[in-house]
Simulated scan of single mutants.
Amino acid sequence: MADVVRPEVRSRMMSGIKGKDTKPEVYVRKMLHAAGFGYRLHHRKLPGKPDIVLSKYRAVIFVHGCFWHGHRCHLFKLPSTRTEFWRQKISANADRDVVANQKLLDSQWRVATVWECAIKGKKRLQPAEIESVLVNWLRSESGKLEVTGRPGD
C-alpha cells in the first residue's frame, strides 16, 4: 500500500515525534516526584542517556515506547509499508538498548525499563501498581527491573 501523504509531509510528521518528555516519561516522573524521589533527566554522560537518573540509589529508569523499541506486546505492530526499513530501525534501537543496559550494569548502575504498555492501552497497570513496583525496586538491591503491561490475549 502506498503512503497517502507526500514524502516531505511524512518526513515533517515523523520529525515531530518527541524523543524526550513523552507522555509516558512525564507520567513516571510525576509519580516518582509525588513519592518523594529526586532525580536528574537525560544524563548525557551515562550510556543510553537514561530518561531518569536517581544517583542516590545508583539507579536509572528508561521509559520506552513499545513501537520504537520493538516490545512484543499488543501496542507493537510492524508497519505494512517499508517493512524492512522499519525492521532494521527498530532492531537497531533494541540492540542499542541492550548495549547501554549492559554498560550501565557493568558500571554498577541498576537499570529499570518501564514500557509504554504498562502505562497505556488495554493491558495497562494501575498507577498504584507501577508506583509500588518502582518504589520497592529503588529501595531494594535488585539490579534490573522491567515493568510491562498485563500478560494475556
Rank of each mutant, 00 (worst) to 15 (best):
V135Y: 01
Q126H: 10
W86S: 03
K77C: 12
R124V: 02
G121P: 05
G70M: 06
V133F: 00
E84Y: 05
R139W: 09
S55H: 13
A112R: 13
V111M: 06
A94V: 10
A100Y: 03
Q108N: 15
K120V: 14
A94T: 14
S80C: 13
A59L: 05
R124T: 01
K122R: 13
V114R: 12
I130S: 10
K77R: 15
K122I: 05
A92S: 15
S107T: 09
G65D: 01
W86P: 02
H74W: 09
G121H: 10
P79N: 06
A94D: 09
K77G: 13
L105V: 15
Q126L: 10
A92H: 15
N136A: 12
W137H: 00
W137I: 01
L125P: 03
Q108A: 15
W68T: 00
T83K: 15
A94G: 11
N136L: 06
A92N: 14
W68Y: 02
S91Q: 15
K123D: 08
V53M: 02
K56T: 14
Q126E: 12
N93P: 09
I52T: 00
I90D: 08
R139K: 14
N101W: 08
R96Y: 01
C66S: 07
E116I: 07
L54G: 06
I52H: 02
A112Y: 04
A94R: 15
K89P: 01
E129F: 00
S132G: 14
Y57E: 11
S107R: 14
Y57W: 11
W109R: 10
K56Y: 09
L54Q: 02
V133M: 12
T113F: 11
T83S: 13
L134V: 03
W137C: 00
C66D: 05
A112L: 07
C73R: 07
D106L: 12
L54I: 10
H71P: 00
L125T: 03
F76P: 07
H64D: 09
K120T: 14
A59F: 01
V60E: 06
W86M: 07
P127Q: 03
E116R: 11
